[in-house]
C-alpha cells in the first residue's frame, strides 16, 4: 500500500526498505574509511598508474601485517574503553627477548613462545595497574612505553644484536608467489578476532564494557576481567607483529616500532573506532591499516617526498572522523 509521507511524496514499501538499508549503510562507523580508501586509491591510480600494478599491490600487502596486527589489538582495546601507548615498545622488546633467549641457548620455538608470553604479561601488567588503582590507561601505558623501550635497548646492548642462523623464519615470512606468509597470518588472526568480537559472548561483553561500563557491571559482567584480557591481547599482538618484522629484516632493532602506537591509533580511528569505547570493528582496523599503507606506497610510486607521509596521516585521521560525523548526521536525519 502506498502511503503519503509527511513531505507529501508517495513511497512504496520497497522504497522504504531501500531507504532503511541505505540509512543502515551510512550509519556504519566504517563508512568514512571506505569512502576515503576509494578516493585515495583512485587518486593515486590517476597520478601514477603504476600504483595499481601487481607489484605495488603485493608491496602494500607485504608491509601490512605488522601495522595491521598492532592496529587490530589497539582497536580491540579501544572498543573495551582503554588505551595502550606501549605497543610500539613491546613491538621492539618481544623479539629482543626472543633473540636474547636464543643466544642463551633456549630452543627457538620455546624462545618465541616465552617472549610472546612476556608480551602478554606486559599487557596484563598494564591492565592490572590501570584497573586496580583506577588510573587512566593513558598514564600506565605511557610509563610502560618508556620502561619496555628501555629494556629493549638494554637487552640489545647486552647481547650484540645478531640474528642467529637457524631461526624458523619461514613460517612467518616465507613467500608464496611474492606474497609473504605473514599476510595469511594477518588474515587468519583478523578472521578469528572478527568472530570473537562480533559473534561470541566475550565479544558482546567487550562492546558492553567499553560502551557503558556501569551498565555492563550492573548486568553482572566482570568488566575488569574483560578489560584485562583485552590489554593482554593487545600487547600479545604487538609482540607478534614485532616478531614478524624482526624475521623479515633478520635483524633485531631496539628502535623498532617507534611511533607505531600512534599510527595504530590513527588506523583504528580512520576505521571508525570511537575513542570513547564501545564502537569499532575488525574490518575498520583493517581498513585503517590498508589506507595508511596505500598512502605510504602511493606516495612512493608517485614520487612524492616521503616527508609528506605524516602530514597525510594527520589530515586523513581528522578528515575520516569529520566525514563520519557529517555522514552519520545526514543519515540520522533520513526518514527510514
Amino acid at each position: 500500500m502506498n502511503q503519503p509521507t509527511p513531505g507529501g511524496a508517495v513511497t512504496s514499501p520497497g522504497g522504504q526498505r531501500r531507504r532503511a538499508l541505505t540509512k543502515r549503510l551510512l550509519l556504519l562507523p566504517e563508512i568514512s574509511g571506505i569512502v576515503l580508501l576509494v578516493l585515495v586509491t583512485v587518486g593515486f591510480a590517476i597520478v601514477a598508474p603504476a600504483f595499481l600494478s601487481m607489484r605495488s599491490v603485493v608491496n602494500i600487502l607485504n608491509i601490512m601485517p605488522e601495522l595491521g596486527l598492532v592496529a587490530l589489538g589497539t582497536t580491540i582495546l579501544i572498543i573495551a574503553g582503554e588505551f595502550d601507548l606501549s605497543v610500539g615498545s613491546v613491538f621492539a622488546l618481544v623479539p629482543m627477548v626472543m633473540l636474547w633467549l636464543v643466544n642463551l641457548g633456549v630452543p627457538p620455538a620455546a624462545a618465541m613462545a616465552l617472549s610472546l608470553m612476556v608480551g602478554m604479561a606486559i599487557g596484563a601488567a598494564n591492565g592490572y595497574i590501570t584497573l586496580h588503582f583506577a588510573i587512566p590507561s593513558f598514564i600506565t601505558t605511557l610509563g610502560m612505553l618508556f620502561i619496555a623501550r628501555s629494556l629493549a635497548v638494554i637487552l640489545s646492548n647486552l647481547a650484540p644484536p645478531a640474528f642467529p642462523p637457524g631461526m624458523p623464519v619461514d613460517f612467518l615470512v616465507a613467500r608464496i608467489d611474492r606474497v609473504q606468509v605473514s599476510v595469511i597470518w594477518l588474515l587468519v588472526i583478523c578472521a578469528i578476532a572478527a568472530v570473537i568480537l562480533h559473534r561470541t559472548k566475550i565479544g558482546n561483553w567487550i562492546y558492553a564494557t567499553g560502551g557503558a561500563q556501569q551498565a555492563a557491571r550492573d548486568m553482572g559482567i566482570n568488566t575488569r576481567a574483560v578489560k584485562l584480557s583485552c590489554f593482554a591481547a593487545c600487547s600479545l599482538l604487538a609482540g607478534f607483529a614485532g616478531m614478524i618484522q624482526t624475521f623479515r629484516m633478520q635483524a633485531p632493532m631496539a628502535s623498532a616500532g617507534d611511533g607505531i602506537e600512534l599510527q595504530a591509533i590513527a588506523g583504528a580511528v580512520i576505521g571508525g573506532t570511537a575513542l570513547t569505547g564501545g564502537v569499532g570493528s575488525v574490518l575498520g582496523a583493517l581498513l585503517g591499516t590498508i589506507l595508511l599503507r596505500v598512502i605510504d606506497t602511493g606516495m612512493t610510486t608517485s614520487r612524492v617526498d616521503a616527508n609528506w607521509f605524516q602530514l597525510a596521516i594527520g589530515v586523513l585521521t581528522v578528515l575520516s572522523v569529520v566525514v563520519n560525523v557529517v555522514i552519520r548526521g545526514r543519515a540520522a536525519r533520513m526518514r527510514a
Binding site: G211, A215, G278, V279
Partner: peptide, 11 residues
C-alpha cells in the same frame, strides 16, 4: 531496573 536504564547505547 536502574534509574539510568542500564544499557549500552550503541548496541
Amino acid at each position: 531496573i536502574y534509574q539510568y536504564t542500564a544499557m549500552a547505547p550503541q548496541m
